[in-house]
Design a protein around this nucleic acid. Structure first.
Lengths: 140, 140
DNA sequence: CAAGAAATCATCCTTTCGGGTGAGGGACCG
DNA sequence: CGGTCCCTCACCCGAAAGGATGATTTCTTG
């Protein structure tokens, strides 16, 4: 993190020094200002891409900001909101009891929701349901 | 993708136009060239970060031809080839018995591999192991 | 208001998972 | 050759998950 700041600052300083150096031929050769601006813009866009990747790299990929729920498939299979909530939680690796605690309901309720989900998703196991739900883009 | 090119080009063109416009007071007020360079650098670094994030954003998670196994994490956690195979099959939603059949071993063997995996992945359940393995890029 | 869908909970029962432990055979390495 | 890993398998036991069924309550919708 700090190194990125240093590299960035260094790049900035180096660039300005470089510009100072070429300022003479800048006048003589009559390169347009726009040309220099363009070079700088491209360089720092590249630097930005690099820095951006470095800064946002280590994040967990599964939390996809681009995830869009497939509402059509939800309705087609008749999956209710509550069932979807349960689905999301078990996909995160929670047990039935943990899901029950998080949703403030009994384990039996969670099991009922899950049973219904298995039917609606043609799944025999929770892992299969998760896999299918991901394919159908019902969960990220 | 194309829109990004347009936005980038537009930003470049707009900036140059802006510079042209302020060129007069640039001379009058005697702002240093370095100051402008700095502004441009910062702006395009930001643009680069934005563009980089947009360009490298992952699209589909499951059908990912770009999946690259995180070998480092494999070795770090001491996960063997056979354990990894089991992990992959489990993630596809198979039961222990099904995995055993596919790998031509007994259920007990699969269970042993799984137990070891749970330790190595700090997981208590198969669903949790799958979730962690995906985060660590051990499975697609 | 009646019908139906959702959500809730329960009980009984079977299957699957997971933890613990032990153990034998094969491969690799110093 | 002995040590270490990996793969294999087995047995036991308790916990979790899953199937089947029935019931109550709330909420929506015709």
């Amino acid at each position: 993190m700090k190194r990125i700041v240093f590299i960035y600052g260094g790049a900035l300083a180096g660039l300005i020094a470089l510009l100072k150096y070429v300022e003479y031929r800048f006048i003589v050769r009559d390169f347009s200002l726009e040309f220099y601006i363009g070079i700088i813009a491209v360089m720092f866009t590249g630097l930005g891409i690099w820095a951006g990747r470095r800064l946002t790299r280590r994040k967990v990929i599964l939390i996809d900001p681009n995830f869009a729920l497939n509402e059509g498939e939800m309705q087609r299979r008749g999956i209710s909101k509550r069932e979807h909530e349960v689905l999301e939680l078990i996909a995160k690796g929670h047990s039935n009891q943990e899901v029950a605690d998080k949703l403030y309901v009994s384990v039996n309720t969670v099991k009922t929701h899950l049973s219904n989900l298995f039917l609606k998703l043609d799944a025999a196991r929770r892992t299969q349901a998760i896999q299918k739900a991901k394919e159908l883009r019902l969960i990220p």
